[in-house]
Amino acid sequence: MTTGILLQIAQTLAAILLAPLLMGWVNQCRAWLQGRSAPPITQPYRTLRKLFHKDAVIAHNASPLFRFAPYMVFACMALAAGLVPTIANDLPFSPAADAIALVGVFALARVFLALAAMDIGTSFGTLGARREMLVAFLAEPALLMVFFTASLISQSTELPTIVETLAHKEFVLYPSMAFAAVAFWMVSTAENARIPVDNPTTHLELTMIHEAMILEYSARHLALIEWAVALKLFTYSALGIALFLPWGIAPQGELNALPLAVLALVAKMAVGGAALSLLEAISAKVRLFRAPEFLGTAFLLGVLGMLIHFLLEV
């Protein structure tokens, strides 16, 4: 139990500390693919440090909600990162919140961010909040469907149990997970404000979603949000690994498997980050009103995944 708690804390802290590194790696890959010279991999840390040192500038009419939201978003993402098995499958906190609760945590963070965006009352803030909720209302059920497919297979909504079924029991090829994987990729691009749904580097009012919401934030508040964004990317990558490539995560109570698990995680994250930037580089940003179609497709693929489970795997 104590090792479990230690592992839990270590995993969460590692996720918080390493998340900007993954972000830096993705940015680097992206720059290479676009033929630019890349920023150093530690660039996100420097940005965070710079932001934390600055004075916060807040609009006159900002309510306490506006100042509270970044903390809330960060806390939610830290919590989410702690729920996903990354190196060890031994998470004492996971019985308190299963995969459905994880979706709830993401939703909680999103609602707070959207409300904070509407708080100042600029046209950009409300625009961003509206678009974010538009993306979310399809992405969230789609993510749930992905989890449901996995939990129909493993008879559980607990992430450690899912990982155990997929990685540590007899190897079985699950066709339904192929559907879930495609749906998951589509959802995670949307949820992490990536091409083809959103573009993290744009500030063009016709296209931006996430950036429009956080335009009013500065200094430490912005730093917390940026960090939370990096954490979200990390958590989604960890989720993708846990659901579709779980081999290597140390099973419960096997401490000597840990070094290998860390290596496996680093390798998978590096490949995953590169794959993400590659997919981003070859796809085009869709029009805003194609985004619901894109996510609707993801949602229906998730539903199909569940159906395929009934067709082929029962």
Binding site: V111, A114, L115, M118, A136, L138, V303, M306, L307
Partner: peptide, 28 residues
């Protein structure tokens, strides 16, 4: 399972509705 999907969709849309209700009335 399709019904579960519909419930999930309704729940997610409820969040949309509530952000709209609270945001437009009390914020800004």
């Amino acid at each position: 399972p399709v019904a579960a999907a519909a419930v999930a969709l309704a729940a997610a849309l409820a969040a949309y509705v509530m952000v709209k209700f609270f945001g437009v009335t009390f914020l800004g």
